[in-house]
Amino acid sequence: MLRLYESAGGRGTATIDWMTGKIQAYSVNLLEQETGPLQAEAGTLTLFFQPYEVKTIKINHNPHAQEA
């Protein structure tokens, strides 16, 4: 889980580069329940922020592994 926020009161962009390649990313609420998939290409995820916006992201970096 990653929790990111825009703290300067402006609009902004954040780019996350996952070094291991393919990932699956999901937007989640504050209870960490999935609210929707996010588009990640070649391990890169780009997020756009509104002023003071908080985003919580769930990343599965091994999409072929099964959860126990």
Rank of each mutant, 00 (worst) to 15 (best):
R11S: 10
T56K: 02
Q33N: 15
N29K: 11
T13G: 11
E67C: 12
A14E: 02
P63Q: 11
E53C: 07
T44Q: 14
H64I: 06
F48M: 08
N29S: 11
P51Y: 07
W18C: 08
I59L: 12
G10K: 13
R3Y: 03
Q39F: 02
A42H: 10
T20M: 12
F49G: 00
Q33K: 09
E6W: 12
H61Q: 08
S27N: 12
A65E: 15
T20E: 14
L30G: 13
Q33G: 11
T35Q: 13
E32C: 06
T44E: 05
K55R: 15
G12V: 08
L30A: 14
L30I: 06
F48D: 13
Y26L: 01
H64K: 14
Q24S: 10
W18R: 02
Q66E: 12
V54N: 04
Q24D: 13
S27I: 00
I16K: 03
G10R: 09
A65I: 13
A40E: 00
Q66P: 00
L4C: 12
A25C: 07
A40K: 01
D17Y: 10
K22I: 09
G43E: 02
E34A: 10
P37A: 13
P37R: 08
Q66I: 09
Q66S: 15
E32P: 01
A40N: 04
E67S: 14
A25S: 06
S27F: 03
E53F: 07
N29C: 11
E53Q: 15
L38C: 06
G9R: 04
L2S: 03
G12S: 15
E34F: 06
P51A: 07
R3C: 10
N62F: 00
G9S: 08
M1V: 02
G9Q: 06
I59M: 04
A25G: 03
E41Y: 01
G9T: 08
Q33A: 08
G12R: 06
K22C: 09
L38Q: 02
A14K: 04
L31E: 15
S27A: 15
Q50T: 15
T15G: 08
D17I: 09
L4H: 05
A40L: 02
W18K: 04
L4P: 01
Q24E: 13
A8C: 14
T13P: 05
T44V: 10
L30K: 12
S7E: 05
P63K: 11
D17F: 11
M1H: 07
V28C: 01
F48I: 11
A14R: 08
T46D: 11
T56C: 04
E53G: 07
E53L: 07
T13C: 14
F49N: 01
V54Q: 08
Q24C: 09
A14Q: 05
G36I: 01
